[in-house]
């Protein structure tokens, strides 16, 4: 599903609420049958760890960890034993096996977003939240990243929630949802 709309229309806010990254003034969100806002912050975090993957416009890699270690993070959070092997495999899938030990600041924007993709998919999430994943990238890199994301999405059978204002991109999604000034429009 694609969420589209002009700047300031509330796309990212909606995404944040859907993922339980922020708390609404009123109303609620059910994720995989669980009411997110009946849980506390920790409960929501655990639910995210189980269900969700994320890709952000500004990558949000930890600057002090290498590419591989960034990908290992969600696995470690779940206490997965062979985190290193699975993370290496995941990096391989995004074509960055050779850059595994580089710090984010030594990677290009496109490479950083590929690390973020590897991190998002490494746990096999049921749902992937992507917030303008190509917003910080040039057209060529952006297209590559999108291809890669749709490919992984297809392979893993993940539900994708994509925030974008790129019309072409939203067309590639099964459903489109358009926001204007915080309201859904047909």
């Amino acid at each position: 599903m694609a969420i589209t709309g002009a700047s300031g229309s509330g796309k990212s806010t909606l995404l944040g609420l859907l993922a339980g990254l922020d708390v609404p003034g009123s109303g609620t969100v059910k994720l995989d049958g669980t009411d997110l806002f009946l849980l506390d912050e920790d409960g929501r975090a655990r639910l995210r760890a189980k269900l969700a993957g994320f890709v952000f416009q500004s990558f949000q890699l930890l600057p002090t960890l290498s590419a591989l270690e960034n990908v290992m993070l969600p696995l470690e959070l779940q206490g997965v034993r062979d985190a290193r092997a699975r993370a290496t495999e995941s990096l391989n899938e995004v074509g960055l096996a050779l850059r595994a030990h580089h710090l984010p600041k030594h990677l290009s924007g496109g490479e950083q977003q590929r690390v973020a993709l590897a991190r998002a998919f490494v746990c096999g999430p049921k749902i992937l939240f992507a917030d303008e994943p190509t917003g910080n990238l040039d057209a060529g890199n952006g297209a590559q990243i999108m291809d890669l994301m749709f490919e992984l999405n297809r392979l893993q059978g993940t539900t994708l929630i994509l925030v974008t204002h790129d019309e072409l991109l939203s067309k590639r999604c099964g459903k489109q949802l358009r926001l204007e000034a915080g309201r859904m429009v047909p």
Binding site: L21, G43, A45, R46, R48, Q60, L62, L73, L77, Q78
Partner: peptide, 10 residues
């Protein structure tokens, strides 16, 4: 914040 997004609890 990043860790919490990825599912770390307090």
């Amino acid at each position: 914040a990043v860790l919490r997004v990825l599912g770390a609890d307090s």
